[in-house]
Design a protein around this nucleic acid. Sequence first.
DNA 1: TGCATTTTTAATCATATAGTTAAAAACTCA
DNA 2: TGAGTTTTTAACTATATGATTAAAAATGCA
Lengths: 210, 210
Amino acid sequence: MIKNAARPRGRPRNFDEGEALEKATQVFRSKGYDGVTIDDLVAGMGVVRPSLYFFFGDKRTLFLRVLHAYAEKKGSRAAKALLEPQSLRDSLAGFLRHAVESATEEGSAPGCLLLCIAPVVNDAEVQQFLQNTVAGGMALVKRRFRDGISAGEIPPDFPVTARASQLLDIARGLTMRAQIGTPRKTLLRDANEAADLLLHPRRGKAAQDH
Amino acid sequence: MIKNAARPRGRPRNFDEGEALEKATQVFRSKGYDGVTIDDLVAGMGVVRPSLYFFFGDKRTLFLRVLHAYAEKKGSRAAKALLEPQSLRDSLAGFLRHAVESATEEGSAPGCLLLCIAPVVNDAEVQQFLQNTVAGGMALVKRRFRDGISAGEIPPDFPVTARASQLLDIARGLTMRAQIGTPRKTLLRDANEAADLLLHPRRGKAAQDH
DNA sequence: TGCATTTTTAATCATATAGTTAAAAACTCA
DNA sequence: TGAGTTTTTAACTATATGATTAAAAATGCA
C-alpha cells in the first residue's frame, strides 16, 4: 500500500484548491468583478460559503489571488510564444495568436481577465499590479526586438520601443474584439497581418513610394 | 419681458436633463456598470431618487441612454477628426489623437465608456449595440482609406480592411492604456508613431531590406 | 471505540440596495 | 386667491448580499 501523500487529519474537503481557483477565474471572466456575488462564487467554485471565506478570504482577496495566478500563467505562455527559437516575424505572429487564442478559448467567456476585466476594478492594488504587468510585457517584447537586431533580422535603427507599444496595443485591441464577440478566425487573420505590418523598417518621408 | 420659452406648469425641476445625463456618464465611466448603485447616480446626477426613476427609468435603461448619447457624440467627433480635409497621415494621426484625448480628458475618469466599460456589461442589447458601433467605425475608416487611394496618397493595392482593423485595434489599445493610468503625453506620442506605421505600403518578402 | 481534527451543513445577522409610495412644496393659470 | 399640475421630500418595503456562527459529519489516530 502506497503512502505517497499522508492524508490530512480531519474531514476531507469537497473541492480541489487549484480547480476551485480555476473555476473562480471563469466566474470573474464571465461576470466581471463587481458583477460577481459570493453566491456566484459558491456555485461556480463548488466550495461552500464558510469554506470559501476560510480558505480564500473575501471577494477582493480571492480576486487578487486569481489575478496573480492568471497573470503568471498567461505571462509565461506569452513569453514562451515570443521567445521560442524562430524568425522575428513568427515570434510576433505567435505572440498575437496566443493572445487571440487565449481570449477565445472554449469553456471560458471571451476576453481577458488582465486586459478587459481588471482595468475596470476600482482598487489601488489591482491597478498597481496591472501597471507592473504591462511594464513586464513591454520589457519582454523589447528584448525580442533587440535580439532581432542582433541577429540582423531588422536594422539597428529599428524603433524598438514604439513597435513594442504597437504590438501590445494591437494585442489589446484583438482581445477587446474577442470580448465583444468577434470570431476567433477573424482575429487570427488580423493577428497574422499585424505581425507583417510591425516588421516594416522605420518610415521616412517616403510615404508615396509606390 | 421676454417670453422665449413658456415655462411648464408644475413645480420646476432642480436639474437639467442634459447635465444629469452627462453626470451619469461620468459616474459610469468611473465606476463601471455593476459597480454603480442607484445612490451613486442620485448623488452624481443631482436628481433625487423618485425623479431618477420617473425620468430615466431603472439603471439599465439609463445606462443604455447614456451609452447611445456617448456613442453618438464620440462617433461624430471621431468622424470629424478622420474626414477633415487633410493628408491621410494626418487623418489617421488625428483619429488616434482624438481617441487618446477623449480617453484622458480632465474631469472624467480615464478610459472610454464604449471600449472599456460597456464590453463587460452582461446585456444582449448592449453587446448588440457595441457590435453595430464597431461595424460603423470600420466602415468609416475604410472609407477614408479608399479616398486616399482615389487621391493617390496610397497605392491601389493598399490593404484597406487590414489597416482599418489595425487602426481601430491600436485605438483600443491606446484607450485601454489610458484606463490603467498611462499619461496622455505617452499615448499621444504613440498615436503619432502608429499613424506613420499604418501608412506603410503592402509588405512583400522584402522584410530584410536594410 | 473514543478523542482530536477538519470541513460541511444549516441557519442566522446586519447591512446594502432596488424600487415604490404618500404627502408636501413650488409652480402656472384663471 | 384658489384650483390644477409637476416635482421634491421623506419614508418605507422587500429583496439581495456579505459575512459569521454553532452544530453536525467525516476523517485519522491511539
